[in-house]
């Protein structure tokens, strides 16, 4: 619309709005955006839970996630998956994928708990200020990344293709495929599960109590350290589930630094929805996924995906500084 050619090295116009392309692809972008958004949401829940309880931004959560993705790749490679779909019967395939998901959950859960014990607990014992936790989190993130790089080398793992997505039904002329549907539904189910867990179980009550007021909760007999460990564990398990769906969508995406950008976007999703709030994480994740896809098409190219997602995040935070649903793990909303 307003081509500012002088600003660009390659001489193309600067910002143009591709409205017709956006209209034509709207629904396919929506379905794909929701599928990616569901993955962001599952990772975002890990950020949100830890933040809600400890007021700590666990930057190493992206590495908790990528550890799970390695577990998925190793498990599936061991089961004979590779560069082409394995051609298994549906029940056998589901069994293999479930096994991979469970192992990924175990690995991510262990990494999250170990991280908590090694990196954060010693700081907590010394009563370190929040900035010390933040720097430790960033340090832990790089440490795990480069441990993986040292172990697996700088290249991505061989791709493991689970199945080729098949269109199931069509909505407004655009197909919804089985992969998109599985990822979306699984994220909803897991989010509802965690929400109910926090609401209805004794452990959930403990988590909410510590989130609300750690000192009083301790006085009331809640074991704070155990609650914190449990929080990291749940975050890790959700990241493990996200890892399976991520590899399903991007079979060659497992690389030592592959969690980094995804983690930042998931963190943004958590802040967007209202950090500390499970439903907010789900909503924020789906929105970040959608906005990125819409923005990329509307503005003409995929280099806008991340930019537009963060611009919208900043705009929403200006209007609602605590995120769309507000910050509240311990408070009334959960």
């Amino acid at each position: 619309m307003h081509p500012l050619t002088a600003f660009l090295a390659d001489g193309s116009s600067w910002i143009t709005f591709d409205v017709s392309g956006f209209k034509a692809e709207f629904w396919s972008l929506t379905f794909d955006g929701l599928a990616y958004g569901a993955i962001y949401a599952l990772i975002a829940m890990g950020y949100t839970l830890v933040y809600g309880v400890l007021r700590l931004i666990n930057f190493a959560h992206s590495e908790v996630f990528i550890s799970g993705a390695y577990a998925v790749v190793f498990t599936l490679s061991f089961l004979g998956f590779g560069g082409s779909p394995p051609g298994l019967s549906t029940p056998a395939l589901i069994g293999d994928l479930l096994l991979a998901m469970i192992l990924a959950m175990v690995v991510s859960g262990i990494v999250a708990v170990v991280l908590e014990r090694v990196a954060y607990r010693p700081l907590r014992k010394k009563g370190a200020p929040p900035l010390a936790f933040l720097i430790t989190a960033i340090g832990a993130s790089f440490t795990i990344q480069y441990l993986i790089e040292w172990w697996r080398g700088p290249n991505a793992e061989n791709s493991v293709i689970m199945f080729i997505p098949k269109p199931l039904f069509s909505v407004f002329g655009s197909n919804v495929d089985d992969q998109q549907l599985i990822i979306f539904l699984a994220a909803i189910v897991l989010a509802v599960g965690v929400d109910q867990f926090l609401k209805r179980t004794r452990f959930g009550r403990g988590i909410r109590a510590v989130a609300q007021d750690p000192d009083t909760a301790t006085l009331m007999g809640v074991n704070k350290e155990r609650v914190i460990m449990l929080t990291f564990l749940i975050g890790g398990i959700l990241a493990g589930a996200a890892a399976l769906f991520y590899v399903m969508k991007v079979p060659s995406g497992v690389i030592y630094n592959g969690g980094f950008i995804l983690g930042i976007k998931a963190f943004a999703a958590a802040v967007l929805g209202g950090i500390g709030n499970i439903r907010g994480a789900l909503l924020g994740g789906l929105l970040i996924g959608l906005i990125g896809e819409y923005g990329a098409t509307l503005l003409g190219n995929a280099q806008w995906t991340d930019v537009i997602a963060f611009v919208v995040l900043v705009l929403i935070l200006m209007i609602r500084p605590t995120g769309i649903l507000g910050e509240s793990l311990g408070k009334a909303r959960v």
Binding site: E25, L29, V250, I261, G292, A296, T297, N301, A302
Partner: peptide, 14 residues
């Protein structure tokens, strides 16, 4: 146009 390090190409594929 995509970015170095990008892994998901949803809008490009659409």
């Amino acid at each position: 146009k995509v970015t170095t390090g990008q892994k998901d190409f949803g809008s490009t594929v659409s």
